[in-house]
Design a protein around this nucleic acid. Sequence first.
DNA 1: CTTTTCTCCTGTATGC
DNA 2: TGCATACAGGAGAAAA
Length: 297
Amino acid sequence: MPELPEVEVVRRGLADHVVGRTIASARFSGERVARRHLPGPADLAARIAGNRVESARRRGKYLWLVLRAPDGSQQALLAHLGMSGQLLVEDPAAPDEKHLHARLVFDDTGPELRFVDQRTFGGMALAELDDDLVPETIAHIAPDPLEPAFDAAAVVRAMKRRHSAVKRALLDQGLVSGVGNIYADEALWRAQVHGERLCSALTKPTLARVLEHAREVMLEALGHGGTSFDALYVNVNGASGYFDRSLNAYGQEGRPCARCGTPIRREAFMNRSSYSCPRCQPRARPRRVADTPRPGT
DNA sequence: CTTTTCTCCTGTATGC
DNA sequence: TGCATACAGGAGAAAA
């Protein structure tokens, strides 16, 4: 549920509070948090001890710390928050959270970094970095709309070739990353497009408009510190953003559409929920009246 | 190859 | 009050 803006808020917190410090020791508890690190949690902890944090980076919903080992080599400590993951910068004396899965202690005895995750869909792993300082294990994740490498025209061309629902494409991190259920619904509401319309049936300008709205809504949310529905989406200090007050579709079932007043509907989609305006976002493109056969005529 | 479905997890809300 | 069920849903494996 933390999507691009929420993850970026966390990244900035790490840049402020963790970059430049050296990890003295770490502990990963349980098998799930480090499940993508095959040698196991103890090995992961041992491999990052003594490393200095050089930068905090992000692509889409992935977040990583670029680490410099004492021998001069670089590696990445990659993290994904999943649905309920939190990275918190806290006083070492603070009591352990119920779902504390990882703890990084620094050699300056300052605040420690904790990974807390109620549902443990998230996790941490070690990765090799490519020449652009992107972890090799996320090479399949496409650039997100807020990074310079993002090529909107190329994404539009790729979308146009797809025979799947436009919302499914927005959620495909291999096509464009960072967009989750919340911002997909918001972008589609702004673009006045129903999420179940097929990419291949939409015009390139329409696809471009959807994509541009996704970029804009995520940028606005970032300006508000992200979206929060409950205490699960927080920055490194445990505080929530307030973009949820600005949502026009997601979670708004039954409330009047801000454009036309029609009650927002909720529909099942991909075993999830989708929210849209029945009037502004018709399922099929409205055809000219003269071309539309009327039943019974 | 492309596209869809399933699975992982636990706290909260709702219904009987 | 207690218990069962639905829901939140990102990502990757597996299936179609």
